[in-house]
Amino acid sequence: MSEKSRFAGDDNKLDRIRSDWEPRIIGFACNWCTYAGADLAGVSRIKYPPNVRIIRLMCTGRIDPLFILKAFFEGIDGILIGGCHPGDCHYKSGNHKAQRRIILTRRLVGQFGIEPERIHLEWISASEGERFARVVMEFTNMIRSLGPNPIGRSRNGG
């Protein structure tokens, strides 16, 4: 991995990034539903904004709240979590466990001054390519209107 430190005191670069700031979003997608739905969006050539970078997991139940806190601490602006619809989870109920954890995590990050809306959970099935694209677009726009993650900003000296 490149070891460059964040902004490295380069004020010009910092300014430039602020002026054309783009939301950086991590998506956690379960292998069976949402990841397949994202693949279907691709196969169907449905366009959506490029701001979300997906990390594939077997199940949203795998998501440890620490993953989300870590991402915000590192300066990520939003977390999009996609799992199977209720009743469709490949592992019976991993999605429900994720849902409960996400509710708590949202309350937790609120106390740190991070808008809870920056964490979003959506049920997207393997057949919902169009919906995946729409959710990415709407979430990206929402994060754009919220602006950069306040924790990331302060760490960046802003």
Binding site: M1, I17, R24, I55, R62, F67, G152
Partner: peptide
């Protein structure tokens, strides 16, 4: 969880956020 360890996932998160400054 073999093949989906905390370290592996955390490393991905870090890698994706580092590109912020690229």
């Amino acid at each position: 969880i073999y093949h989906y360890t905390d370290q592996q996932i955390m490393a991905q998160i870090t890698a994706l956020s580092e590109s912020l400054c690229e």
